[in-house]
């Protein structure tokens, strides 16, 4: 799946390279900057991947975590080992979180590399108009990768909870991905504005503040708090469900 994620920046870079550039104001954010600075391939790829592709892969990993073991029958052997139900949940969640980081990092790193290979590289112009050296720019991109990683932690907790509900991993995976999409649709409807601050997807794309000079960490903090709330709620639900569940698979 990390390989599939790596294809996104590669696809974007090649498409821009072949078509000879994008006009400003069309397509995903940062797309028009790529021809000027190849480092923006990673940024553009993150913007493209965050709403759908990334949640899809998170859904697969988190949805499979418990349900996959149950469908194989290995869950009963892990539990009689004894792994401990809470301990197993924690380990599975940590694995999902590590995958989130690996996924975001893959997109940023592969994007930067392919951009460096196909386009000129230069100082990064911040949204405030300042200039960052290439090194500073890369650090900012890594910070944005961290932002996206944190963004996915709430969804991972939801996926983990759904995974304790079933012995059919595909069901938990699909449900997790559907929830991610549904939350974004709700987030796009102005009629549901009262709901927006409560959606785990609400701040998924608010990482532009990290490209100001100096960077603004407010949105990072607010997003982290939001995701933490989701981790607590769905982590608790998963624990409650899993510790009282009859393991019949």
């Amino acid at each position: 799946m990390l390989g599939a994620l790596a294809l996104i920046p590669i696809l974007i870079a090649i498409a821009i390279r072949v078509s000879g550039g994008a006009s400003a104001g069309r397509g995903p954010a940062f797309l028009d900057q790529i021809t000027g600075n190849g480092l923006f391939v990673g940024m553009t790829a993150l913007v493209v991947a965050t709403p759908l592709f990334l949640p899809l892969t998170i859904g697969v990993v988190a949805g499979d975590s418990i349900a996959g073991e149950a469908s194989l029958g290995t869950l009963r052997y892990l539990l009689v080992a004894p792994a401990g139900r809470i301990r197993l949940l924690v380990v599975k969640y940590v694995v999902a979180a590590v995958f989130c980081a690996a996924a975001a990092l893959t997109v940023v790193v592969v994007g930067s590399l392919i951009g460096w290979a196909l386009f000129p590289i230069g100082p990064v112009t911040t949204l405030s108009g300042g200039q960052l050296t290439v090194g500073e720019g890369l650090l900012r991109f890594l910070a944005i990768g961290a932002y996206v990683t944190v963004s996915m932690l709430g969804l991972s907790a939801i996926g983990l909870f759904l995974s304790t509900m079933t012995t059919v991993p595909v069901g938990a995976m699909a449900a997790t991905a559907i929830i991610a999409v549904a939350a974004q649709i709700a987030g796009a409807l102005p009629q549901l504005e009262w709901l927006h601050p409560w959606l785990f997807t609400d701040r998924w794309l608010d990482f532009a503040d990290l490209l100001r000079s100096p960077p603004l960490w407010d949105s990072f903090g607010a997003n982290a708090l939001l995701q933490f709330a989701y981790i607590v709620v769905f982590g608790a639900l998963a624990a409650l469900r899993f510790t009282t569940k009859d393991v019949l698979s």
Binding site: G73, A81, P82, A83
Partner: peptide, 23 residues
């Protein structure tokens, strides 16, 4: 109720996995 293993791990790796689950 029958043995169960991760199909893409070897027999040895499966045993190591279950053993690691036991604190």
């Amino acid at each position: 109720e029958g043995p169960a293993f991760s199909p893409y791990l070897s027999g040895e790796q499966n045993l190591r996995r279950f053993d690691a689950a036991d604190r």
